[in-house]
């Protein structure tokens, strides 16, 4: 059986919102180390994954490895019934075909329970090589969202150039072109509001062209984290990582656009 109690429903709500438009259904893999998932979009261009470590739940119990097939649209609808500050208890009894979600209000006066039908999904796992990236950019996630949104008005793809100076996002379209350069900075704590600066750690400069449609989908994870890590090497898929507090992360891998 699985029983996992997450103190804040908002975390699960945000995770589901940030993958549901990329992936329609996927297996949630549960083990004694936590709950994870990995799935590609239909066109094989983007891979979404997340991990919530067992210590992020209190308590967490998973007796054996489970693969629970879930339709994101259904899960998203059910999670809309949970308050942001509700506690969520995820419960699965062995050999059942449903997953139970219990929402408890903070004062424990309202307890709602929903069951979601599980699917039998034959998912294809890709093994992602454990690689060192040539360049690691860390920047504000809200700034990343703004840049992707702004450049979408110009073109369908963005070129990300990372150098020691900083990171530059450029787009070109039929009506013109645009670019945003973020210079490398320290983390500036703006009156305690924790404004995240931009940092670039690199072995060599990287330049990659990526589809803005996908990047705009990835920005749905921005509410989970103040910062986003963009890990890049020339000519291979980019990894975007949004940390979920210190209990896990959401990662997106995106295949680049390559010159003919």
């Amino acid at each position: 059986m699985l029983e996992a109690r997450l103190p804040q429903a908002s975390i699960l709500k945000k995770i589901v919102e940030s993958v549901k438009d990329l992936v329609s259904q996927a297996n949630f893999d549960c083990s004694d180390s936590g709950i994870s998932f990995q799935a590609m979009d239909e066109s094989n261009i983007a891979l979404s994954s997340f991990l919530l470590r067992a210590d992020g739940f209190d308590p967490y119990r998973c007796d054996r490895n489970l693969s629970l097939g879930i339709k994101f649209a259904s899960l998203s609808k059910i999670l809309k019934c949970a308050g942001n500050d509700d506690v969520v208890i995820i419960r699965y009894m062995d050999d059942a075909d449903i997953l139970s979600l219990v929402f408890e209000s903070p004062n424990n006066e309202r307890i709602s329970e929903f069951d979601i039908k599980l699917l039998d999904i034959d998912s294809e796992y890709l093994s992602i090589p454990d690689q060192e990236f040539e360049c690691k950019v860390k920047m504000s996630s809200s700034e990343f969202s703004r840049i992707c949104r702004d450049l979408m008005t110009i073109g369908a793809s963005v070129v990300i150039d990372a150098t020691k100076e900083g990171v530059k996002f450029s787009a070109t379209g039929d009506d013109g072109s645009g670019s945003v350069l973020l210079k490398q900075s320290g983390s500036i704590d703006n009156e305690g509001r924790g404004v995240v600066g931009t940092s670039v750690e690199m072995v060599e400069p990287v330049s990659l062209e990526l589809s803005l449609k996908y990047l705009n989908n990835f920005t749905k994870a921005a509410p989970l984290s103040d910062s986003v890590a963009i890990n890049m090497s020339n000519g291979i898929p980019v990894m975007f990582q949004f940390d979920v507090g210190d209990i896990g992360y959401i990662r997106y891998f995106l295949a680049p656009q390559i010159k003919d």
Partner: peptide, 14 residues
């Protein structure tokens, strides 16, 4: 012109 690559050309299917 650029062409969109797919992930399966980079990541192996076990």
């Amino acid at each position: 012109m650029s062409k969109q690559a797919t992930l399966s050309s980079f990541f192996a299917k076990p």
